[in-house]
């Protein structure tokens, strides 16, 4: 039996910003993906605290890591998140 690739795929290094965009698109957020450049802060693209929290939870689930509250400043852009994950996962 073949397994359909579900939305909860595991993330492996290297993590790209395109992959992170794909994850955001799967979440029910207020983030405007058209406005979101790799170095745009997620808040500037419409994210509120819940969107940030859900994005972080989705990443944690897919990577099997915990992103502490105080590290949020490093992961508030797609670039930042990709850099952070590539460091943590490699």
């Amino acid at each position: 039996m073949t397994q359909e690739p579900g939305p909860f795929f595991r993330i492996a290094v290297p993590v790209s910003t395109a992959l992170l965009r794909q994850i955001i698109a799967q979440l029910d957020t207020r983030i405007n993906l058209k406005k979101l450049k790799d170095n745009t802060r997620l808040r500037d693209a419409g994210a509120d605290s819940l969107d940030l929290f859900n994005f972080i939870l989705a990443i944690e689930e897919r990577c099997g890591i915990v992103i502490p509250s105080e590290d949020v400043g490093q992961v508030n852009t797609l670039d930042g998140m990709a850099r952070y994950l590539n460091e943590k996962l490699s």
Binding site: R43, S49, L52, V72, G73
Partner: peptide, 15 residues
């Protein structure tokens, strides 16, 4: 509350 300038540097909901 979390002061606005810290809202994308700290996860209030996790706290």
């Amino acid at each position: 509350f979390l002061l606005p300038e810290f809202r994308d540097r700290f996860s209030y909901l996790r706290f």
